[in-house]
Structure formats: structure tokens, C-alpha cells
Design a protein around this nucleic acid. Structure first.
Length: 269
DNA sequence: GCGACAG
DNA sequence: ATCTTGTCGC
């Protein structure tokens, strides 16, 4: 799978100003509404179709295959990035791709896509299948210019995408997020730190994807649209992909595969 | 000057 | 992100 929109490919040799300017163009090109073919109800739950009615199933195309959902993650080894993409159909892993790339710039909050975007696109270049949805490890719209990693790569590949971050980069939660029960969510709203959004606009959610009964010890995850997915839909999809764990299954699989490749690179080549 | 800051 | 053993019990 190769980049569709080459003009948006994150270039680590740009100046900081050029990077920020490109991010504004990426945000302007992004679509934050549902533009995808698959049935959201066919995501997660082990690939089972949702059955909360009964006359509805007959209207679904019987031959409609489950969507391809990809997880993306990276591991690091000195000045190299190990980037991986793991693609599933239901519970079955149908393809894995990886790339080992030299890192060109350090991590800078707000410019993550310029450090990790190139390596991630290198992994996608090795991928044969075309995912229906890609889950990224990082923010999408929850970003100073609404162009986080999930949005930037999603727009560059023109693929539906969502961002899942373990921490909040910017924006303001509607409610206190600590100690919430599993399944709870609250909007993340644009504040003065988000330069190209209406103040108060919902740009993502804090989602308590996992919690224990007696004592609250798990932090929420921060979900935001990347591209071609609406805010509510993105969080719904991610929630369905969290199969009893804090992180969605695609990212957990990608994380494990990245570690595996990293071990091999560290010892073998 | 101080604090905040995805991975 | 990464360096790391055991330990606790959700």
C-alpha cells in the first residue's frame, strides 16, 4: 500500500514552520465524517455481527466480507525505528508487514508524525492488502493543529483511521477523568491550544476502556478521529476493539509484533 | 521565568 | 519510546 497523496508525506527535513504549515494543510484535507464502506457493527466482538434487532440481518449482503482492520505500532533501537502493520479480518491475522528505518529527528510534542511518519509509510509500502480501517498509536484530531499522527498518515494514504493515545496531548475533558467505571467516556473539547477549531468543539473522547471493580487504578485512553471517521464513530469502533483490555486488539497485536521484530534485529541483523 | 507536552 | 524482577490479585 503506497501513499495516495504524496504532497502530504511527512518530511523530517522540513523546518519547524514548514512542518506546522503542512499540518494545517493536512487538517484542511482531512474528513471527520464517516466515509467508509464497512458496517461498524461488524467490527470487534470477535468479528461477530451485531444483533440488537432481528429483522435487520436479512438486509445485510450475505456475502459481505468482514472489514480489514490494521494496527500500527513502533519499537525503537538506538537511532532506528521498527515500524509494523498487522492486518486482521475478524479474529484472523491476514498480513503483517514491517520496516526498519533510520530516525532523522527527535521526538517533539506536536510533531510526532515527522519523526515516525516516514518509518510507518515504509512499513505500509511493504503491505499488500488495503485496510478498511487503521488504528494508530497516538493522536488524530486531538492535536494543536488537528493533524496528529493518525490524521497525517490517514490523509496521506487516504484510508479511514483513528488515533488511540495513552496520554492527552491537548484539549480539555468535559469531566474529571479519574476513577471512572469501564465503558465511561467524556468529550475532549478544543480549547485555546487548538488553533484551527471552534472553541468547545468536540475533537475526541477520553474512554475508560478498562477498569477494575473495587479500586480504580487504570487510566483512560484518548481516542480521536484520524481521517474519514466521525468523533463518535471512532470512539465506538475503538471501544468495540478493546476486548477486555485497555488497548484495542489491533494495537496490542502490532505492539507484540514490533517487539518480536525488534528482538530479531537486535540479535540477528 | 514556569508549567505542559502523543511516542 | 526505553532501561528492568518480582509482586500483587483488581
Amino acid at each position: 500500500m503506497d501513499p495516495i497523496r504524496s504532497e502530504f508525506v511527512p518530511d523530517a527535513s522540513l523546518t519547524r514552520e514548514e512542518m506546522e504549515s503542512l499540518q494545517r494543510e493536512v487538517a484542511a484535507a482531512a474528513t471527520w465524517a464517516d466515509v467508509f464502506d464497512f458496517d461498524p457493527g461488524s467490527i470487534g466482538a470477535g468479528g461477530d455481527l451485531a444483533t440488537d434487532g432481528d429483522a435487520r440481518q436479512a438486509t445485510l449482503p450475505p456475502e459481505s466480507p468482514l472489514p480489514l482492520v490494521a494496527g500500527v505500532d513502533q519499537a525503537f533501537l538506538d537511532d532506528r525505528a521498527v515500524s509494523v502493520v498487522v492486518v486482521r479480518r475478524g479474529d484472523e491475522i491476514v498480513e503483517r508487514a514491517h520496516a526498519v528505518t533510520d530516525l532523522e529527528i527527535p521526538y517533539i510534542p506536536g510533531l510526532l508524525a515527522f519523526r515516525e511518519g516516514g518509518p510507518i509509510l515504509a512499513a505500509f509500502a511493504e503491505l499488500e492488502s488495503e485496510p478498511d480501517l487503521v488504528v494508530f498509536d497516538g493522536s488524530g484530531r486531538i492535536h494543536y493543529r488537528q493533524a496528529g499522527l493518525a490524521t497525517h498518515i490517514g490523509v496521506t494514504l487516504d484510508v479511514p483511521s483513528v488515533g488511540v493515545a495513552k496520554g492527552l496531548l491537548c484539549g480539555t475533558p468535559d469531566d474529571v477523568v479519574d476513577g471512572r467505571p469501564e465503558g465511561w467516556r467524556t468529550p475532549i473539547r478544543a480549547d485555546d491550544d487548538v488553533e484551527n477549531a471552534e472553541p468547545g468543539e468536540t475533537i475526541g473522547h477520553a474512554l475508560q476502556s478498562k477498569q477494575y471493580d473495587s479500586r480504580p487504578i487504570v487510566n483512560p485512553i484518548y481516542v480521536s478521529p484520524g481521517h474519514r471517521v466521525a468523533v463518535d464513530t471512532g470512539t465506538d469502533l475503538v471501544e468495540r476493539l478493546c476486548d477486555g483490555y485497555k488497548l484495542p486488539e489491533p494495537t496490542r497485536l502490532a505492539d507484540a509484533y514490533a517487539d518480536e521484530v525488534k528482538r530479531n534485529v537486535a540479535s540477528g541483523g
